[in-house]
């Protein structure tokens, strides 16, 4: 009788600055599958990990914001390509971790790919849609254009793939960099997505992904003085959401509040997730000879 082959299991770590480190705290937490069976020990991110991720995200801002919109659009499209090519892997992972049917998982994976393609196309159009020339009453050239806000902290929603992609893509496509706190309930898919990002020409530091507990890590991101904005979409405890918004006021972060109920991620989005993390800059110059 031949011995059955033993699986080579994956170690799930964090994703910071384009590398996959363990938590500096040396801590991990157990993640079970939908049936309660052990899946993996995920890294339990600490305050230090959050700060390291912000440093990496800040470092990546000038390079990423300085890319042409066309180039950022191509990189988002590349993420979609790589995600699509690994579709079966994500379907299997969603079935195992979330307990959804294979058909449902397939719907989510395809929608996530399509969402990335949709946002990829926005890269070189959003400036035309939300920026404009201003007809001022004087001899001046006057132009308003959107710019990325900078480093955006994102508390990702429960939907481990489609939800995550739906909040991450609009943040980075305009030139922001992100520190994402993955869904506490389903953290593993976020790290698998990091492998996709890592293989898609996304420069290191543009997306940083932490796994752990929201109540422990999110307050450090909300109060961090080098984070420019925070998306609270994944915060389900209203009291925590209020505390985070209050902490965010320390340096007047732009805050996207948590929705009252989990959004329907399959619906076509508006552009508000793009505009929430943009600044309008207006430039004046006299006209003369």
């Amino acid at each position: 009788m031949a011995a059955s082959r033993v699986d080579v299991r994956k170690t799930y770590k964090l994703y910071i600055g384009g590398a996959f480190p363990r938590s500096e705290s040396g801590r991990s937490f157990v993640v079970n599958d939908a049936k309660g069976k052990f899946l993996a020990n995920a890294s339990l991110a600490s305050r230090k990990d959050a700060r390291d991720a912000v440093v990496a995200a800040r470092k990546a801002v000038p390079g990423w914001a300085g890319r042409t919109p066309y180039n950022r659009g191509q990189i988002l499209y590349r993420i979609a390509e790589v995600l699509d090519s690994r579709g079966d892997q994500f379907v299997a992972e969603l079935v195992r971790t979330e307990g959804v049917t294979a058909a449902k998982a397939r719907t989510y994976v395809e929608a996530a790919v399509d969402r990335l393609v949709w946002y990829a196309g926005w890269a070189d159009k959003i400036g035309q849609v939300v920026g404009n020339a201003n007809p001022v009453s004087g001899p001046f050239f006057n132009l308003s254009s959107p710019e990325p806000t900078g480093v955006v902290a994102v508390v990702a929603p429960r939907g481990p793939l489609l939800g995550l992609v739906s909040v991450l893509a609009p943040v980075i496509v305009t030139g922001n960099t992100a520190v994402v706190l993955a869904s506490e309930a389903h953290p593993l898919t976020a790290i698998t997505l990091a492998e996709v990002l890592d293989a898609s020409d996304v420069p290191g530091g543009v997306v940083n992904i932490l796994t752990g507990t929201v109540s422990e890590v999110a307050p450090w991101l909300a109060s961090h003085m080098d984070v420019n904005a925070i998306d609270l979409t994944g915060v389900t405890d209203p009291e925590l959401a209020t505390d985070l918004e209050r902490a965010a006021a320390d340096n007047l972060k732009r805050v996207r509040r948590a929705p009252a109920t989990e959004p329907d991620w399959l619906a076509t989005p508006g552009i508000d997730r793009l505009t929430d993390f943009l600044e309008i800059k207006t430039v004046w110059h006299p006209i003369g000879v």
Binding site: N134, V136, G138, F140, N142, S144, T282
Partner: peptide
């Protein structure tokens, strides 16, 4: 310079 048609902030 300020103008009602020009965003400020």
């Amino acid at each position: 310079k300020f103008d009602p048609a020009s965003p400020f902030g």
